[in-house]
């Protein structure tokens, strides 16, 4: 029952949060949309007294901008590579963890370890592991000092002379993408394992007992019992995985630095979020806003597709 005399008290409790939300959440939503539709808006020019007309120019510019389509391609590629791989691996690990007794707690702790890390810091560790030390790499005067620990391990299988330039100058794009995929998957595993293992532990053991009596093969038990009963958790980690994937930025800064690419090809691995910050740094707020709205639109669409698919697929 709403006692109107006491309502003002409730608003008093809400006041600090509401004031801050108005300034730093509500106003940005309105203003960023406004800037996106102001043609060629720039904060610097606006301060100088310039005026801007309403229109779709920013969106047209962004979509036709080669730099932007490249970041769109990179972002999509990273999503498509990392979300399925990390979800599948996390599922395997969670199922395996759930089936063992000794060492379960210890292994669970180890698998959670990457969660509590700084993505820039550990990105630098991955850079060090993939880095090739030497001068004039990839040229005839190449002077190789050390191929890095990852190449060292790979040489056990491929032979002494072979190495891949993963992140250095002259490194191929697929190698850069491979490093980022490994790092992002490594980083994404702990959260997914945590959620999936929680889901597995909540499954009623009776289903497995029934399958046991019918002597159902292990693979069938997995595809017909485990996965369907786990589907709400799977949908959850896939959706959050895609949302995180579309906002990928700092992990690439961690490995490649804020040039977002190997030294001879800066910007090659730039993502949509990177494009937004670059535009902001160049005082092109209109462009940045349009890109941010496109990013939001993509996230919305992908989330709805995911929800729609999971409505059909998720059991219960």
């Amino acid at each position: 029952m709403v006692d109107s005399k006491h309502q003002w008290k409730a608003w008093l409790y809400l006041a600090p949060a509401l004031v801050l939300l108005l300034v730093f959440t509500v106003w940005p939503i309105i203003n960023t949309v406004r800037l996106a539709f102001l043609e060629g808006y720039s904060g610097m020019k606006a301060a100088g007294g310039a005026t801007f007309t309403f229109g779709l120019e920013n969106f047209e510019k962004v979509i036709t901008y080669k730099k932007f389509t490249l970041t769109l391609k990179n972002t999509l590629l990273l999503c498509v590579l990392t979300v399925p791989i990390s979800t599948f691996l996390a599922l395997l690990i969670a199922v395996a963890l759930n089936s063992i007794k000794p060492l379960q707690k210890t292994l669970q702790t180890i698998f959670f370890l990457p969660y509590v890390t700084n993505s820039i810091a550990i990105g630098m560790v991955f850079a060090a592991m993939f880095n090739v030390v030497g001068s004039a790499l990839g040229t005839p005067n190449e002077n190789l000092t050390s191929v890095g620990i990852v190449n060292n391990i790979l040489q056990i299988f491929t032979g002494k002379d072979h190495y891949v330039s993963w992140i250095n100058s002259n490194s191929p794009e697929w190698a850069n993408m491979f490093v980022m995929t490994v790092y992002i998957v490594w980083n994404a595993l702990p959260f997914k394992i945590l959620v999936l293992l929680g889901g597995l532990q909540a499954i009623n053991k009776q289903y497995y007992d029934a399958a046991k009596i019918d002597s159902t093969p292990r693979w069938r038990v997995f595809t017909r019992i485990t996965v369907p009963l786990l589907s709400p958790m799977l949908a959850y980690v896939i959706i959050t995985g895609f949302i995180g994937g579309f906002k990928e930025y700092t992990s690439i800064v961690g490995v490649f630095g804020d040039k977002m690419g190997p030294p001879d090809a800066p910007g090659r691995l730039n993502t949509m979020v990177g494009f937004i910050y670059d535009s902001l740094a160049q005082n092109r707020e209109g462009l940045a806003s349009a890109a941010a709205i496109i990013l939001f639109g993509i996230i919305l669409v992908v989330t709805f597709i995911n929800l729609w698919v999971s409505k059909k697929r998720v059991h219960y």
Binding site: I29, L35, K247, Y277, L280, S289, I293, L295, F296, I299
Partner: peptide, 8 residues
Amino acid sequence: PGELFTIT
């Protein structure tokens, strides 16, 4: 996404 807020 937070980037949308960051601009403003």
